[in-house]
Design a protein around this nucleic acid. Structure first.
Length: 262
DNA sequence: ATGGTAGGCCTCCTA
């Protein structure tokens, strides 16, 4: 069985309902994981998605901030959620497919501007969130699992437009990169995107603040697709749909895709 | 070195 999965930080699912529908129509992933829905679950618009065959949604939400959802045209069951770092935020939800694969949709805290937990509480929360994820993987090794989402860290030198310039910028500091790698290794997760696309610059996010995001191309790879070691080899055909960053009234993130042949 | 844009909400928070 082959299925395609995409992950996208949508930055308000209500404002960008039309863009989600466009992605579902044009690219037709079997499963679409969304982050930053910025909506309570009962206010997520699902009619257009259902009309396109996406009859399942497992989500966690809150008013105004955060929020994660898994849309699917394959049957899903709710596999729970964890409040990593006890922030009271909707940043994780899991769903199970009929083939037994568990899909985790994660939105790691951005972490504020100052990369120092003494001066910036949000940075500490980001590190704590990752530490608790790591510990959960140590406690129970993931199997037949996929983890995707906006992890808000670009771990490799070629995951950012300028490695040196970003070493002190939250999302690419060594302490975050180490923490993310430790979290990934603790679960035996494989970075499927980079397994499929090992070489060259690769980004999934471009700031709204840059005048000409496409020409300047000062991007970062903040959005990730991981698979547990037992199914990682089945991950194929990864890609970033960069075009979506140029759609009308876009999210600042582009969707990341992977196909699994199980 | 700085400030730049965007979304949601209740006048400023977060990214």
């Amino acid at each position: 069985m082959t299925f395609t999965l995409a992950t996208w930080n949508i930055n308000s699912v209500r404002l960008r309902e039309g863009l989600v529908a466009r992605l579902l129509r044009d690219e037709a992933p079997d499963v679409l994981c969304l982050q930053e829905c910025k909506s309570p679950v009962d206010k997520i618009p699902t009619e257009q998605f259902r009309a396109l065959g996406y009859n399942w949604m497992i989500a966690r939400g809150q008013k105004g901030y955060n929020g994660v959802a898994i849309l699917s045209r394959l049957p899903l069951t709710d596999a729970g959620s964890v409040d990593f770092a006890d922030l009271g935020h909707a940043r994780h939800v899991a769903a199970r497919l009929e083939n037994g694969v568990t899909v985790n949709c994660v939105y790691v805290p951005a972490g504020g501007d100052i990369p120092d937990r003494e001066q910036n509480e949000k940075f500490g929360q980001k590190l704590d969130f990752l530490t608790q994820m790591r510990d959960s993987f140590r406690a129970e090794k993931p199997a037949k699992s996929i983890l995707v989402g906006d992890l808000n860290i670009a771990p490799r030198e070629d995951d950012v437009w300028n490695h040196k310039a970003l070493l002190k910028i939250v999302s690419h500091t060594p302490v975050e990169v180490d923490q993310l790698n430790e979290t990934r290794e603790a679960g035996g997760w494989v970075d499927v995107t980079r397994a499929n696309i090992p070489d060259g610059k690769l980004y999934s996010w471009w700031s709204y603040r840059a005048a000409d995001w496409d020409a300047a191309d000062k991007g970062r790879r903040l959005d990730h697709v991981w698979a547990s070691a037992d199914i990682a080899a089945s991950g194929q055909g990864s890609r970033v749909l960069r075009d979506a960053r140029g759609w009308e009234q876009p999210s600042d993130h582009a969707p990341v895709f992977a196909t699994f042949d199980l």
